[in-house]
Design a protein around this nucleic acid. Structure first.
Lengths: 335, 335
DNA sequence: GCCGCACATTACAACGATGGAGAGTTGCGT
DNA sequence: ACGCAACTCTCCATCGTTGTAATGTGCGGC
């Protein structure tokens, strides 16, 4: 910058002013400075700017695992939303490990960013207070409600209920709740199970507890394994409401290997609307959680907190709308 | 830091020395400083450190698209390798767009990182010189060889040849080269096609050019579409060597819909060994490109360039070993 | 008891940018 | 012509850290 100033015959500060669109600069001065910048290929040092201004132009996205397609797609949407606002995204993977999730949040790296999008799996409601750090945080996901930060989430209960009602509407009654977690109340599994039950309750139907299936980690392999166990146990069922797409796809594969036809013998619906659901065989019905809107909203809220003045706005809870996407795996069977 | 120094009764520099493990510090002083740091919850300001030392502890990973599972998995491996060395990763998506790929490389953001892992789709050999930027760069992928930077890649030719030979070994002769790109010589498509042809040549067999299929963008949908076209054209074939897993999966789905049995009617092998290939129906044979080793090597080379003294080491080309992974989609048919 | 050396600590000046205050220059109304 | 406001630009201090050089201690050897 020093060199630029020298070459343009102005002060360093004037160069800075040009770069930052300070209004009171004569047009010819501005042009001259811009030309010199162009010629010399000058680029501002972000570290110095960050030091002086306190803003780095980077936000952090903390997620469990990029290999999980849902999170990769979420990261993609977040990066798009961030890019629109001139921000870069630093991704941190927690592996869904509680210690690591906390460690990341408290680490010095988080002081290098202007804000944090925090999507956790292991922290729970009891940790709400721990998320109160100096850097602005927007929480994603279903683990903590009513905490000290903004929170963007999907309508889990309503979506699970809608998925279940979709199955009921096609005449299915022995429906697996696939992906429950023992004793979980909040968290995706807990909320989705609640919605699932609501659908039965309000239809005046009873749901057999034997059809509630715990599926460990919601990876594809877990879904496959759990479905093998179900088939081995001999429990009869005619539909699966899977609590995410990965386990739905894993389960579908196992069922097909076992000779079950989808949707004729068993209808399936998943959750997340990952890209693969459009190409699986059969294509998988699912819940579109509004990923892009979640990302866009989360980044917007975070920006408001970052640029916001001292006014202490109360934490906001935002629930994004979902859509039921019907594909081949739950087409109404012609009897 | 000022506060810490005050509370510990030492100078600011001593605190800095403690943090940076400067050897000549009395043990009790070190302890006292560490205690105060702990108590006050002090954390160093990375921007300031970056400004002063010229190192930020961040590297950038430029990839086309995170939604592409191969790149998501690559990013995961890179982040793991980086984390081992105390680095964070800033991911930038280029969308496979030439202008954007260059823009990212030249943008001020790249001055905020210590090094760049650069995986491009649109740049080509003719752009080799453009990649010569002040920040250390390690190139990934198959678009540029012999450029001014280090380069880590897989053995594309050999791997494609091995995949093809695997198919020939199971008695297939009418094999689709699925994913070729017209006129491409280097680049993944060009190299893999070369390996494909080598397998035929060295077996003394002729390959019918009608079996070379151009598949636009190597996304799953493109594979599906291209396969539909092939089936419509009525060309006979008994195996598919797909140049990546995504198009293999897309094609498999279309073939199955059309009533073809895999591997009985058509054997299939892909490229990349993405997680999904272990769970598709049937499971997909593929080439494991040694993703983790690529990531590990790339980060290592980059670190060497970053910490390396002025000694101008010549650009290195490293080819990582691959493995042929045989799964259900290419099991030998019992005739 | 003095010197020299190794150890332990500190003072000071950067790194490159920006915020704020102020100095110089216009232009306009009176 | 003069004052005042608006404009244009510069000077200085500062963000938090670390490299360099210098200073301050303690100890053994002669």
């Amino acid at each position: 910058m020093r060199t630029v100033a020298l070459a343009a015959g102005v002060s360093i500060k004037t160069v800075s002013n040009v770069i930052n669109d300070y209004p009171h600069i004569r047009e010819d001065t501005r042009q001259r400075v811009l030309e010199v910048i162009e010629t010399l290929g000058y680029q501002p040092n972000l570290s110095a700017r960050g030091l002086r201004s306190g803003r780095t132009g980077a936000i952090s996205l903390v997620i469990p695992d990029l290999r999980n397609v849902y999170f990769a797609e979420l990261a993609d949407s977040v990066m798009a939303a961030a890019a629109k606002r001139g921000l870069v995204v630093m991704i941190e993977q927690s592996g869904g490990d509680r210690e690591r999730e906390l460690e990341i949040l408290r680490g010095p790296r988080m002081r290098m960013v202007d804000g944090i999008l925090y999507s956790v799996l292991a922290l729970g409601q009891e940790d709400a207070d721990l998320v109160d750090v100096p850097t602005p945080v927007v929480l994603l996901g279903e683990r903590i409600f009513g905490g000290p930060t903004d929170h963007v989430t999907m309508k889990n209960v309503e979506a699970a209920r809608a998925a279940t009602e979709h199955m009921l509407a096609t005449g299915r009654r022995r429906i697996l709740a696939f992906g429950a977690h023992e004793n979980e109340v909040i968290g995706s599994a807990g909320l989705r199970l609640r919605g699932f039950r609501q659908a039965f309750d309000s239809a005046g139907l009873h749901h057999d507890d034997a059809l509630v299936v715990d599926v460990g980690n919601w990876h594809r392999g877990d879904g496959a394994e759990a479905m093998r166990a179900v088939l081995a146990s001999g429990v009869a069922f005619d539909a699966v409401v899977a609590f995410n797409d990965a386990i739905a796809l894993g389960a579908m594969r196992v069922m097909q290997e076992a000779g079950l036809r989808i949707p004729d013998d068993v209808a399936v619906i998943g959750f997340d609307n990952i890209e693969e659901t459009r190409y699986s065989l059969p294509t998988l019905s699912t819940i579109d959680p509004g990923r892009e809107e979640i990302a866009e909203t989360a980044v917007r809220l975070l920006m408001e907190r970052i640029t916001g003045s001292e006014e202490r706005i109360a934490p906001r809870e935002i629930e994004v709308d979902f859509r039921v996407i019907q594909r081949e795996s739950s087409t109404v069977t012609v009897l």
